[in-house]
């Protein structure tokens, strides 16, 4: 998994690239947690444009980050999900708490 991020005042956009599964979960968790530790944002947007696949391991990673982000009063959003990832979001109910923008 590869990462880059763009900060715009109190908002950060994190671009993810690769496959989000058991192999990349720890690395993804670490990168996102470091971003969140270093700054205080009102909104965190995860851009999935470069992510070709995600399974339920990714759900766990996102739920973990969602807890941390909302505990700080911020919002977690996603964008550019492909059809496979969109289906995982729909079936798991993730859209009920993580907004697509």
């Amino acid at each position: 998994m590869e990462f880059s991020s763009t900060t715009n005042r109190d908002e950060v956009i994190v671009n993810l690239s690769g496959e989000l599964d058991e192999k990349s979960a720890a690395q993804t968790r670490e990168y996102l947690d470091k971003q969140l530790r270093d700054h205080r944002y009102n909104r965190v947007i995860l851009d999935f444009h470069g992510v070709s696949f995600m399974d339920s391991t990714g759900i766990g990673v996102l739920l973990g980050r969602y807890k941390k982000i909302t505990e700080n009063g911020a919002e977690l959003c996603v964008r550019n999900l492909n059809k496979q990832i969109d289906k995982v979001f729909r079936i798991s109910g993730l859209y009920q708490i993580i907004k697509a923008v």
């Binding site: 979960a25 339920s56 759900i59 990673v61 739920l63 973990g64 289906k87 995982v88 079936i91």
Partner: peptide, 14 residues
């Protein structure tokens, strides 16, 4: 360890 517990649900749905 942040496992979602959604594996079988996804297998069933897909």
């Amino acid at each position: 360890e942040e496992h979602s517990g959604m594996g079988f649900t996804i297998m069933e749905a897909f």
